[in-house]
Amino acid sequence: MALRIPPRIPLRTTINGDPYELMVKPYQTLLEALRDEAGLTGTKEGCGNGNCGSCTVLFNGLPVNSCLVLAPEAQDGHIVTVEGLAKDGRLDPLQKAFSQHGALQCGICTPGFLMAARAILDSNPHPSEKVIRAGIAGNLCRCTGYDKIVRAIMAVARGEVD
């Protein structure tokens, strides 16, 4: 007895500026494709149904829960994951701010928060605290109570981190 599994399909996509040609299962999520096919395990799964935001990546510039995107949807798309935040060996100011402000503890939600925060600042470089809180409201953190995360993003918005 064998399970009928549909054949894999090719997925051409750009991840963190690099071209990828992956063979994905047609029902695979972008999250699974990133982690299991591209080997980029920085993006985390916390719930698998879009409630916790741990798997947030930028898809054509917008933050998405990669567990809710089918991998084939990313055909010819541009994906940025936490591994792509630092450029040319320079950390993104958000990465520095999260470190300096103690905005991470266990760190499992951190990649998702960094990507959500990046999306906030990309669309609004000087957000208010309320805008920041709304922008990360789809990301759950259980360690910090959000205080230091909000402060870290505010510090970047105020240009306090280079």
Binding site: T43, V82, L91, G102
Partner: peptide
């Protein structure tokens, strides 16, 4: 002192390996 976490860099770059990794 407010020393930065020893594991901060690993965790903000996505390099840290958790259970499912």
């Amino acid at each position: 002192k407010r020393v930065i976490k020893a594991d901060a860099l690993e965790k903000v770059t996505g390099a840290a390996l958790f259970g499912a990794d």
